[in-house]
Computed example of a mutant assay.
Amino acid sequence: MNFEQLKPQVKSIVSNVEKTIDERLLSICELLENHIEYYNWVGFYFKNGDKEELKLGPYVGAPTDHTIIPFGKGICGQVAVSNENFVVPDVAAQENYITCSITVKSEIVIPIFINGKNIGQIDIDSHVADPFTEADERFLEFVCTEVAKLLS
């Protein structure tokens, strides 16, 4: 299934008021992980109150010990500070990478904005080296825009 085919499904999940916000976020994770072959771990991190850290939200994939990530640490922590997309084609070549699993070869992190403020991000790990393209970035920006609607 391609990105354009997934967009209406993302919108449908977001608009389903029968489910809680966390259930909808988890459904988005499941949708992406199930339909995009190289998305092997999909999850959300959100700013943890007034703290300069991220807290793990709903996700699918291997369990992680990284439930709290300080701003600036790892790829997610860097995106919390830079407010910019971060694509890592090869995690082994990244100095500030937090190792989650030896199977992870690449990562993409896209921030979520509400009223211009970075409130969290979607984080995707892949077991494939360098799979993420500009099309992934645009699609995940769309997903983050939809998630922002859900959270605002």
Rank of each mutant, 00 (worst) to 15 (best):
K149T: 13
T67W: 10
D90N: 14
F46W: 03
T99A: 14
K7N: 02
Q94Y: 15
V42Q: 08
F44K: 02
L151T: 09
P131D: 05
E30W: 01
I102V: 13
E53L: 10
A129V: 11
G74W: 10
S27E: 15
C100T: 10
D125R: 07
A148M: 09
D22K: 03
D65W: 05
V91A: 12
S27N: 13
C29A: 15
D136I: 05
E30A: 06
E95I: 02
V42R: 05
N96R: 14
N115T: 01
D65L: 12
V147L: 05
H127R: 11
G77K: 14
E52Q: 15
W41I: 06
L25D: 04
I13H: 12
E137H: 08
V81L: 12
A80D: 06
Y38W: 00
P111I: 10
L54G: 02
V60R: 13
C100L: 14
K149L: 13
G49K: 14
G49T: 11
M1E: 05
D125T: 07
P8K: 09
I13K: 12
G120M: 07
N96K: 13
I112H: 12
S82K: 15
G74T: 11
S126K: 07
K47R: 14
E146T: 01
T103Q: 13
T20H: 03
E4T: 12
S15V: 04
K73A: 09
F3S: 04
R138C: 06
E146C: 04
V143K: 09
K7A: 06
N115M: 01
P70H: 03
E18Y: 11
I102T: 13
D65A: 14
A135Y: 04
P8M: 10
Y59I: 06
N96C: 13
Y97S: 04
K73N: 11
L31M: 09
I122L: 07
M1R: 06
L26Y: 14
K105A: 07
E30Y: 05
K47L: 09
V87G: 00
I75C: 04
E146D: 02
H66S: 12
L6N: 06
N83E: 14
S126L: 10
K51N: 11
